[in-house]
Amino acid sequence: MSFQLIERQILTAGKKHDVPEQDPVISTPNVDVYYADKQALDNITLDIPANAVMSLIGPSGCGKTTFLRCLNRMNDLIDICRVEGDIKIDGQDIYAPEVNTVSLRAHVGIVFQRPNPFPKSIFENVAYGLRIHGLTSSKSELADRVEESLRRAGLWEEVNDRLDEPGTGLSGGQQQRLCIARTIAVEPKIILMDEPCSALDPIATARIEELIDEMRANFTIIIVTHSMQQAARVSQHTAFFHMGKLVEHGQTKQIFTSPQDERTESYITGRIG
């Protein structure tokens, strides 16, 4: 898609992108990440505002997914990964020794690239997080929260008659919305999305994008995407990564209409990437 087309999308979508500046919910003063000796992220300083969607864009291997996975410490699972510098969420350094990843991830949920429902029933998929965190006290409360989460993920109407069937039996787009329902069921403040639509067809993608826009009211969303149109459509803020560096970030409109850096411009006009 051409640069002009993206620009037009932004302009037509205009109004909802004008959001008041707030205190950042996440701030990362000078973060470096290494895989063994190889530096994956170099001196990333980024503030992410609350109750908005920020998209992370950039060519493959630029470090945007690495950055995303640092925000709820999913990178802890990789032995050779090392994070230096602070990542602050609500002012708390999440890499401080007293932080436990269990509580952190309950507050910072994640949706993955490929839908990965558990091989359990639809109901149990959503109930899983509620159960492990002990968030509900009764069976009926659990059922209510599952229903609410499925409704918020826009899946309730499609599955309410077959909650006992395996989640793996749903279509790709439904599976991904099930994963979103599963994530929002535990009421995180922040939701990380790692190319959530890359395995989906355009219709399913559109459905998820709508959902993301609705979710903005209640969650801070950070989304990694390869599609610049998607970034333009769903996000208010955009950060452009290139070769492990944060090149440029700001309001989506501004990044796409008047990029400051030459590399950003090359990327969004399709010359690199």
Binding site: L77, V102, S103, Y128, C179
Partner: peptide, 15 residues
């Protein structure tokens, strides 16, 4: 068992 299932569970804050 695919790693993605473990990731999903950790991502929800499971130990």
């Amino acid at each position: 068992v695919p790693q993605s299932l473990r990731d999903a569970s950790y991502g929800l804050g499971a130990t």
